[in-house]
């Protein structure tokens, strides 16, 4: 396989992204990023019994943005809401075997997407 500018893990997730798509009647949807900055992510979550039971995403962006989105959905599935909220961009980038310094913002976008989706969930499900 051709060598890219990213780690093998990033390329693997970029080439075979997990959980692409949308969830009909999602319990929470978070949209972060900005097309002008070159990347934008929409995260859909389903919450059952206080846990993230499913997660799907759509992302416009570079290899790192797509890989971060994919990795994030893997990481939050099965986590409690508090655990999912606690996920940091560093954990996402570490799980990907590291990102180039200029691409750290892609993992930040992933972190922000979870928080946005779970904020949306809390708003829709008060108490």
């Amino acid at each position: 396989m051709a060598a890219g500018p990213y780690s093998e893990k990033v390329m693997e997730h970029f080439m075979n992204p997990r959980n692409v798509g949308e969830i009909e009647n999602a319990d929470g949807v978070g949209e972060v990023g900005n097309p002008a900055c070159g990347d934008m992510m929409r995260l859909y979550v389903k919450v059952e019994a206080g846990k993230v039971s499913d997660a799907k995403f759509r992302t416009f962006g570079c290899g790192a943005a797509i890989a971060s989105s994919s990795m994030l959905t893997e990481m939050i599935k099965g986590k409690t809401i508090d655990e999912a909220r606690a996920i940091t961009n560093t954990q996402v980038s570490d799980a990907l075997g590291g990102l180039p310094e200029v691409k750290i913002h892609c993992s930040v976008m992933a972190e922000e997407a979870v928080k946005a989706a779970l904020d949306d969930y809390s708003k829709k499900h008060p108490g």
Binding site: M1, G4, F14, G38, D39, G63, V102
Partner: peptide, 26 residues
């Protein structure tokens, strides 16, 4: 997005360039 286009083209053995921001200086 430009960088993603280039990465996937490269996977198909095609080497090209992009002026998109994301691919400018990794």
């Amino acid at each position: 997005e430009g960088e993603s286009l280039l990465l996937l083209l490269n996977m198909q053995g095609v080497m090209a360039a992009s002026g998109s921001a994301c691919s400018s200086n990794l």
